[in-house]
Design a protein around this nucleic acid. Sequence first.
DNA 1: CTTGGAATGTCAACAAGACTGACATAAACT
DNA 2: AGTTTATGTCAGTCTTGTTGACATTCCAAG
Lengths: 167, 167
Amino acid sequence: MTERSPSGSPSLLFLTDEQLRQGIEAMFFAYRGFTADPDRILAEHGYGRAHHRAIHFIHRSPGTTVNNLLSILGVTKQSLNRVLRSLIDEGLVEVRVGTRDRRERHLYLTEKGAALERELSDVQRERMRAAYRQAGPEAVQGFRAVLEAMMDPQIRRHFRDLQDNGS
Amino acid sequence: MTERSPSGSPSLLFLTDEQLRQGIEAMFFAYRGFTADPDRILAEHGYGRAHHRAIHFIHRSPGTTVNNLLSILGVTKQSLNRVLRSLIDEGLVEVRVGTRDRRERHLYLTEKGAALERELSDVQRERMRAAYRQAGPEAVQGFRAVLEAMMDPQIRRHFRDLQDNGS
DNA sequence: CTTGGAATGTCAACAAGACTGACATAAACT
DNA sequence: AGTTTATGTCAGTCTTGTTGACATTCCAAG
């Protein structure tokens, strides 16, 4: 607020390329830490990150359709289908044909699926909680604000929809 | 600071699972936005994210060795070598045999490599700058603090080393 | 009632990028 | 002289993404 760029521009922040670069690197390294714990658990079960993402969002929005999941995950249906197939075949996800529109497939976690979801989200939340605690309460606000600003607009809408449903 | 958990534990922050889950999703969606612009450019040039990472860190630490790069990127030498080979063959990276230790290969960007680096980091910095501006100055501090706290300790050391060299 | 289009599933082929394991070479260290 | 270190490379595998093609089901509009 008080700083201005050397060129005299009235921007709110004066940020050197070096500061921005550090933000970029922080994002890269932090994302590795962010996925490290779930990756270990997934490997034990013979799954990958793609399975985690599917499980996460099915847990988050039980009964979601395949198409809905596709637009959230941003992958092709073929790619999602491969992942979904293994989750269904191995009894982690249950499919129910839509009652109103019987083309739609509504997805739910089974007890087994919910158990893995819990295992995965426990470690991930724990890391998030530890980071939040270490960084302090004000930091959490800032963290969330920057992340939201970094999303593509369409995704930001998805994100906010999820928030509204979730609480 | 002022809040406490309902169980009465003396933690600094009271964070519901729901709040933590939102942080996790924010991280996932934001990372997609974070990589979206470079991904587009890389695809035009026939490269991938792995090339971007190599280029980034060679630019950041000119003359870095293969081993050093390996420990920063956290991949196997076979994986890095594939990427490095194409960058060298196509004249984006130059290799110089070490003078003190002639086993070491020191890596530098060529003019062509530096040009691509600039192209990539321009768009990525622009997104970072926009997110920072949108979120405000205090948010940037918090963002950085949480990201650092989320890194694995060894990586955090790497990260801080880079910062010290960078400025 | 028919037809168009939407939602879904599936097959095949391919590519990037990660992995392991094994082996080769050169240089440095002891 | 023997060992360790730094690097490169070959071969094979896995996950996860892609495109393209095609089938099925079924709602909804004409």
